[in-house]
C-alpha cells in the first residue's frame, strides 16, 4: 500500500518539518518513505510544500503527482494544491485558515491548528497539532512512533509538543462537505 500525502502551506508554518517528521516516523516503523520539500523563492512567507510518500514496499517513484491525502494549512496552499488531490482523496485542513475548499474529497477533516497553537503560546507548534490530527484521522504511521519522532526532533520542548500533538488528536473533526 502506498500513500501519497501532500502538505501545503506557507513558509514558517513548519510544513516541511512536518513532512520530514512523518517520513522519519514511517522509516522508523519499517516502512519506506520519501519526502520532497518545495518552496518559493521568498525567504519567509512564500509558498511551501512537502510531498511525503509512505509505502510498505520499496518506493520506486518518490514524487507525487496526485496525492491521496492533502493537508492544507493555509488558503493559499489550498488554492495552489487543491486541484491536485486525487478523486475520492482525503483532505485535512486548518479550519480557521482554510475557508474555501477548492477540491472534491471523499472526506474532509478539520482542526484549528493555528488557533490551538496560539492557545499554547507558540504558534510554531501548529504543525505538531496538525500531525496529531493527521494521526487521528488517517493513521498510516503508528501514533506512538510518530510522537516519539516528534520528541526526538525537539528534545528541548517535549511537553509543549506532546500537548500540541494531543490537542490535535482530540480536536480534529470530520466536517460536512
Amino acid at each position: 500500500m502506498r500513500w501519497d500525502i501532500r502538505w501545503a502551506g506557507f513558509g514558517g508554518q513548519g510544513v516541511i518539518r512536518a513532512g520530514e517528521i512523518l517520513g522519519r516516523a514511517a522509516v522508523k516503523q519499517g516502512l519506506d518513505s520519501a519526502m520532497r520539500p518545495m518552496y518559493g523563492p521568498e525567504k519567509t512567507g512564500g509558498w511551501s510544500r512537502a510531498d511525503v510518500v509512505i509505502s510498505d514496499e520499496q518506493i520506486i517513484f518518490p514524487l507525487i503527482v496526485n496525492p491521496d491525502i492533502l493537508v492544507a494549512m493555509s488558503q493559499d496552499g489550498m488554492n495552489r494544491d487543491g486541484s491536485s488531490l486525487k478523486k475520492d482523496g482525503l483532505l485535512l485542513i486548518d479550519g480557521e485558515l482554510v475557508k474555501d475548499v477548492k477540491c472534491y474529497p471523499k472526506k474532509i477533516y478539520s482542526v484549528e491548528a493555528t488557533k490551538i497553537a496560539d492557545s499554547l503560546g507558540r504558534r510554531i507548534v501548529a504543525n505538531i497539532v496538525m500531525l496529531g490530527a493527521f494521526s487521528k484521522a488517517f493513521g498510516i504511521v503508528s501514533e506512538d512512533i510518530l510522537l516519539q519522532t516528534i520528541i526526538e526532533t525537539f528534545p528541548k520542548a517535549v511537553e509543549l509538543n506532546k500537548t500540541a500533538f494531543k490537542l490535535g488528536k482530540e480536536n480534529v473533526r470530520e466536517v460536512e462537505i
Binding site: E20, D32, S33, A34, M35, R36
Partner: peptide, 9 residues
Amino acid sequence: EVVGHMYGR
C-alpha cells in the same frame, strides 16, 4: 535537485 533535496531512507 530532486535527489539532493529529497529525503529518503
